[in-house]
């Protein structure tokens, strides 16, 4: 009974302990939020902090159910970590299109948010990843600390848990 008593409150326990009832929506959202697999896709400085340091020994991303996948087809989450240039933007759009629904995007760092330090006097940097793909969570910083990446993934999980069942396909249009 230990596990069942710790289950989220929106699951109703039927006396006897063997059966749980919940809504399909809550069940899907719960499972989606708890195993976000992110794409192994670093662009610049933020990749070292956001993907490597966060995934390594001290910060341990795995405990949030976050595992990296090398292929976009297996990933739910794209962390755009770093400066996005015009040359790379086309490829990022292709990668985003290759991910299967439902999919989420975290824009990490100043460059991905709006160009950051490369906003002025720069001919090659796209000023914000949200110009080509929809973004769910923005993380400020140059580069953000691993803790802020963890915070962002928690925020994203919160968002996913509030989603309506029919909504996710519309959210990416």
């Amino acid at each position: 009974m230990g596990v069942i008593s710790k289950l989220p409150v929106y699951m109703e326990k039927v006396p006897g302990g063997g059966i749980l009832t919940t809504t399909a929506e809550k069940f899907f959202n719960w499972s989606r939020a708890s195993s976000l697999w992110y794409m192994l896709f670093g662009l610049a400085c933020c990749a070292i902090e956001g993907l490597m340091a966060t995934g390594a020994s001290r910060y341990d991303f795995d405990r949030f159910g976050m595992m990296f996948r090398a292929s976009p087809r297996q990933a739910d989450l794209m962390i755009v970590a770093g400066t996005l240039t015009h040359k790379m933007a086309k490829r990022v759009k292709i990668l985003y299109d290759q991910m299967s629904e439902p999919k989420y995007v975290i824009a990490m760092g100043g460059c991905a948010n709006n160009g950051g330090p490369f906003y002025y006097d720069c001919y090659s940097v796209l000023k914000g990843v949200d110009k080509i793909i929809p973004v769910d969570v923005y993380i400020p910083g140059c580069p953000p600390r691993p803790e802020s990446v963890l915070e962002a993934s928690l925020k994203l999980q919160e968002k996913i848990k509030k989603q309506k069942l029919g909504e996710w396909s519309a959210s990416t249009e």
Binding site: Y120, C122, L126
Partner: peptide
């Protein structure tokens, strides 16, 4: 859009500080 490192060059997505 030409040769960006030439002095005085401007382009479509180029914002001068």
């Amino acid at each position: 859009e030409g040769f960006p490192l030439r002095r005085g060059w401007t382009g479509t997505d180029f914002i001068v500080k």
